[in-house]
Computed example of a mutant assay.
Amino acid sequence: MNVGFIGIGSMGSLLIDAFIGSGALKPSQITASNRTLAKAVCLADRHPGLQAVPMNRDAVIGQDIVFLCVKPMEYKTVLDGIREHVQASQLIVSITSPVLLDQLEDALPCKVAKVIPSITNYMCSGASLCMYGNRMTEADIARLNGLLSYISEPLPIDESHTRIVSDLSSVGPAIMSCLLQRFIDAAAEETGIPREQARLIASEMLHGTGQLLTSGGMSPEELQARVVVPGGITAQALALLNRELDGVFNRVIRATHAKYREDLERVADSLYGKEVNGP
């Protein structure tokens, strides 16, 4: 299998590192292009055998799967530049949530899919959220999922749920690490414990908690019930948290969805022109 990457920013380079590190792909199976060629060359230096190419079309020609890892407003330029070089048998995979499957199918004469990765995939953990275009066969789906399974749990989702599942899977690590950071900072401020010691303890706690909630089979409610003693210290802590956090995550979700709707409109305007959405 030969795999192309267009765009090797934070997530594109993470996927390449993860695929190579997990043994899913050899560097010689990967071709990468980037707006700044020097960045692709640096990646090739890190992974000898990987091909860094100057043009996006060079990352498409001869590839079985091509990952598009560019920002939403860059899609029109990228799609216009590769359209004539895409073959019907190829699979183009977008990792950009506000670019819709039907827009990709309108723009390209091939099979398309959308995958929302997570930073947790770098550790061969977490989920890859998968949406499949109408031209994909069961064999195409199996091939894509087989590749993704090296670094994640491929989970099929409905495209209408893209934003909320992205919040949980891709935004979630940043939210959880933000909460953990605030917990660590407060511990150091209130007690004088060395911050690095607090960070190590809290990080191991989060790792173990994740295992309990996955392979351990516990739900969040069950885990809390196992820790809380009525009238005890943990009960006091959770009562305070529940008061202070009331409605916070509802507002977080509303904020991410508002930005997503804005991005959807901007992408549609870019791909089709403003007349599609009215004046």
Rank of each mutant, 00 (worst) to 15 (best):
A40V: 10
E84T: 07
F67S: 07
V86M: 06
R57M: 12
R261D: 05
E275P: 00
A88M: 13
I95W: 00
F19A: 11
A38V: 15
I82G: 02
A202C: 09
R251C: 07
I16K: 07
S169Y: 03
P230D: 01
L50H: 06
K114I: 13
I175D: 00
A239E: 10
G7F: 09
L104V: 11
I6Y: 10
S13C: 07
S219K: 11
Q63N: 13
A188T: 13
D185T: 10
D158L: 09
I233R: 06
S128W: 02
L15E: 01
M11K: 06
L271M: 12
E196V: 10
T234W: 02
A174W: 01
Y150G: 05
G81L: 01
P72L: 10
L238I: 15
L101M: 15
G126Q: 01
L206V: 08
Q181S: 12
M218G: 00
G146D: 00
Y150A: 13
T256M: 08
V60D: 00
I65A: 04
S149C: 06
S22E: 04
Y75G: 08
L108E: 00
E221D: 08
M55N: 13
T137G: 09
I16G: 07
P98V: 08
Q29D: 14
T77D: 13
V3K: 05
A38P: 01
P156C: 03
L129M: 14
S170I: 04
D80A: 11
L200W: 05
L79C: 14
A255S: 10
G231H: 12
E138A: 15
M176F: 08
P98C: 04
V267G: 01
A268F: 01
S149Y: 03
T96Q: 08
A44F: 07
A113Q: 07
A202K: 02
D106A: 14
D167F: 07
E262T: 10
P194E: 12
L147I: 14
I164E: 02
S170D: 00
D102G: 14
A59L: 09
Q181I: 07
L223F: 08
P194L: 14
I16P: 01
L271V: 12
M131T: 02
R195W: 06
I141D: 00
G81D: 06
V171C: 09
